[in-house]
Amino acid sequence: MNRLLMAGKTALVSGGSNGIARAQAELFASEGAKVVIGDIDDVAGEQVAADIRKAGGSALYVHLDVSSERSWVSAVATAMDAFGGLTTLLNTAGIYRMASIDDESPEGFLRMATVNQLGVLLGMKSALPALRASGNGAILNMASAAAVRVYPEQIAYSASKAAVKLMSQTAANENGRFGVRVNSIYPGPVKTGMLKDATREVLDAALSTMPLGRMATPEDIAYGSLYLCSDLAINVTGAELAIDGGLLTR
């Protein structure tokens, strides 16, 4: 009963220096996982890893730019060297920017696709051999409510997250037989730095339609992540878990 849910597992968490991914790294570590935090924000990432170690967990930080394949290969190698294997990948790093179709540029669109979409592909591609070798692996990709509903002024973001949804299910279908489960999460608005540029009107419009009427905390997202990545969800793959205060019921 009181066995730690992530005992014996090693998780690589992209974006773990801040926000949702940081909460995931902290919760997974407190449940017994060894965690490798990969991000481009080195100062914050080193601090997160140090805080986890201070709390008695196993964690290390590695510089990871999710848009670079070379960077992924070296992050996975670091995890393997340090902890002897990899069971769990969390593709949580992402970027957000508001822009209407009229205001979006080719460069802006491709930048969003490169981090949010290509980043997820490269993460899965780099980690899958190790996850398959573990015999019981799990991937969790961070999509968004914006992957399945229309919100104003985020054409590039929505497109990148809709790609993450289908990429997750493709990966789930291809890799189930090799012992790797792949699921995705659909947050509504979450209290992190990411929404600092979102306008008050857009946030209020979302909150007013949510049955639970409040923003999520990073911990809300981390808890669902823990369920999906632990063996509690051993029968769950290709699932789309909304943690959104009911936003998607509208």
Partner: peptide
């Protein structure tokens, strides 16, 4: 822990 999940 699932207190932010409804309607799924």
């Amino acid at each position: 822990g699932s207190e932010h999940i409804t309607g799924i």
